[in-house]
């Protein structure tokens, strides 16, 4: 699948933002006054900035409001609702932290829950796609949630918690790579099932000599060359290195760990798309 920058930026940043706001809502980082204002500002900027980046991916963003209508069947629509509700539910907590009034814990829990639901909805957009076997696995939502929580804990300066969550993230990423590599074969689709033809099927002539939307969007083969190296970089930067930095602790090192984590997260998300193979590639004899 084509790793569109807008979608990568969106899912990494808004995931981190919602993860961070989760910890903020639950009072892990008890800030007051202007410090609270800036911390919440960062959370909102990440979450909303990410969502805005996602609209750059649309062919007709001026109609984006219509995407709220099909929550009964569509995960993309549900994600829209969850994001708006989470951002609204966070608002009184953010104001309370800033201006110094209390918000009942039930409400804080609800807001944190909605933030997590948003991240899971994002993940489900990919998980539901049966035609992309690598995504069609329960590890996908686990991985997205893992990124949000581990990154969020780092940003919320929770050294111990971040250490544990980052190690868990490393395990999930490794499992994702390992299981993901076998997913296409397990899905059992071949040029034979795609065409229904028996025997050894190979491409004689492509249907068109130029490019098209399918080849650009779904049959992204360039750039997989360095996938192995990038995978190592992704796990090291997103999880292992920040975990070690969190183990040492200290505000400066924790902030540096957030930056390292983001580099790894971007690499991992790029791979998430670039390595995912769509079954339509079978018609072109490519994957």
């Amino acid at each position: 699948m084509h790793p569109a920058p807008s979608v990568i930026i969106f899912s990494v940043l808004s995931g981190l933002g919602f993860g961070f706001m989760c910890f903020m809502a639950l009072g892990f980082l008890p800030l007051r006054g202007m410090w609270a204002f800036w911390a919440w500002g960062i959370g909102y900027a990440l979450a909303v900035g990410g969502l805005l980046a996602a609209t750059a991916h649309l062919g007709n963003p001026q109609r984006a409001i219509k995407a709220f209508s099909q929550w009964r069947s569509s995960w993309l629509s549900r994600e829209g609702w969850a994001a708006v509700l989470a951002l609204l539910a966070m608002a009184p907590i953010a104001l309370g932290d800033w201006l110094g009034f209390g918000v009942p814990f039930v409400w804080r829990g609800l807001a944190a829950g909605l933030a997590l639901v948003t991240v899971i909805c994002t993940a489900m957009i990919y998980t539901q796609i049966k035609a992309v076997p690598r995504w069609h696995h329960w590890l996908t939502p686990v991985m997205f949630t893992g990124f949000a929580l581990a990154g969020g804990a780092l940003l919320a300066m929770q050294a111990t918690l971040a250490f544990v969550l980052l190690l868990a993230l490393a395990v999930v990423m490794l499992a994702g790579n390992y299981i993901g590599d076998g997913q296409f074969a397990r899905a059992g689709q071949t040029m034979n099932t795609a065409t229904g033809l028996r025997g050894e099927v190979s491409v004689f002539e492509q249907p068109h000599t130029g490019g098209n939307y399918l080849l650009r969007e779904m049959i992204f083969v360039v750039g997989r060359k360095h996938a192995r190296k990038l995978r190592v970089i992704a796990v090291l930067c997103a999880a292992v290195l920040p975990a070690l930095m969190a183990a040492v602790g200290g505000v400066g090192l924790m902030l540096a760990a957030v930056v390292v984590h983001l580099v790894g997260a971007f690499a991992a998300r790029w791979l998430f798309f670039a390595q995912a193979e769509h079954v339509v590639g079978l018609y072109y004899g490519k994957r």
């Binding site: 033809l197 028996r198 025997g199 099927v201 491409v203 492509q206 249907p207």
Partner: peptide
């Protein structure tokens, strides 16, 4: 789109 395949049974 019309594909062309070579098939060896």
């Amino acid at each position: 789109r019309v594909h062309s395949y070579s098939v060896q049974p």
